[in-house]
Amino acid sequence: MELGVFAVLFAEKPLEEMLDHIKSLGLETVEIGTGGYPGNAHCNPSELLADESKLKAFKDAVESRGLTISSLSCHGNPITPDKEFADQCHQEFLDTVRLAEKLGVEVVTTFSGTPGAYEGAKAPSWPVAPWPNEHGEILKWQWEEKLIPYWKEAGQFAADHNVKIALELHGGFLVHTPATLLKLREAVGDVIGANVDPSHLWWQGIDPVAAIKILGKRNAIHFFHAKDTYIDQENVNMHGLLDMQSYANMQDRAWIFRSVGYGHDMKVWSDIISALRNVGYDGAVSIEHEDGLMSIDEGFSKAVANLQQIVIKEPLPDMWWV
């Protein structure tokens, strides 16, 4: 495995300064935003695709520092009823896949997306209960008419360009659990896999180790985000896990995002890393920082220090004792 970072954390730094910073902390790989919600501060695919000299300079900036690109991220919502944003996300996805192929990057990370409740809706709708019955009918329509058709076409495009799609299991989007990921993968093909982020599993009540085992047995893990969650049971009793309060309301929220090791101890994180190794995942462990109790630099550096103790880097040896 390689330890890396989702570089949108340092969007205010120019590309080369950002790369120098993460290299100085001993990281080996970088996930770079190319559009959607994360933005494209360090990498504008349309510009790089249109200018070979800019593409070469971008590639050289990474490789000259001994780094690799673990993934290109265009986390957006290509099936939202907001047509302008949907079209933007779709074009960014296409350009990101084309750029990934040129750079030799195997994985593009993104969200599955969420459509409206019906044709002509003005905003996305995320049903979370099968009753009243219209919620179940909405969900069925969303999958059959929007989600599966979009990703069948997008998945084929990615496969044609030798790129895998890692969909982040994230609440608010139709693919947010192992079951929903596997359901879409069955409809679309193996080009679809999971971007496993434990922080989004914990607040849904899902054990990340169990999720890794479920997905890993089907070779359905394409990427991994390292982020933690602290769950405050007293606040859960008040607001439930589907807490809609602002993330800034940290004292009252049922759960908040934390840097690695500040929501769950390192034994839990060691079990997660071991589960990834056990199912054959040997890709990036990409740190994502959204901890409201720490500055970017402090939260990020603590996550790096914690993960450097437990990430398994060397190739799996023969079992000499067997």
Rank of each mutant, 00 (worst) to 15 (best):
F6Q: 08
A7M: 12
V8Q: 15
V8T: 15
L9W: 01
L9H: 12
L9A: 15
F10E: 10
F10S: 09
F10G: 06
F10M: 08
A11P: 04
A11G: 13
A11H: 12
A11I: 05
E12S: 15
E12M: 09
E12N: 15
K13L: 15
K13R: 15
K13I: 06
K13E: 08
K13C: 07
P14G: 10
P14Y: 04
L15F: 05
L15Q: 08
E16K: 13
E16D: 14
E16W: 14
E16M: 08
E17K: 14
E17G: 07
E17A: 14
E17D: 10
E17P: 08
M18Y: 05
M18I: 04
M18C: 11
L19Q: 05
L19R: 02
D20F: 14
D20A: 10
D20M: 11
H21Q: 12
I22Q: 02
K23A: 05
K23Q: 04
K23H: 03
S24F: 00
S24M: 02
G26V: 10
G26C: 11
G26K: 12
E28A: 03
E28V: 06
V30C: 06
V30Y: 00
V30T: 05
V30A: 07
V30K: 06
E31Q: 14
E31A: 14
E31N: 15
G33T: 02
G33M: 03
G33F: 00
T34F: 01
G35M: 04
G35C: 07
G35L: 03
G36E: 02
Y37Q: 01
Y37K: 03
P38M: 00
P38V: 01
G39N: 01
G39S: 03
N40D: 03
N40H: 12
N40K: 11
A41T: 03
H42Q: 04
H42R: 05
H42W: 06
H42E: 04
C43P: 02
C43S: 07
C43W: 02
N44D: 09
P45R: 06
P45H: 15
P45C: 06
S46N: 13
S46F: 12
S46T: 11
S46R: 15
S46Y: 14
E47P: 02
L48R: 01
L48E: 04
L48W: 10
L49C: 02
L49S: 03
L49Q: 07
A50I: 04
A50C: 10
D51P: 06
D51M: 06
D51S: 13
E52N: 13
E52Q: 11
E52G: 08
S53M: 07
S53D: 14
S53H: 06
K54I: 04
L55N: 11
L55Q: 13
K56H: 12
K56Q: 12
F58N: 05
F58A: 07
K59D: 15
K59L: 09
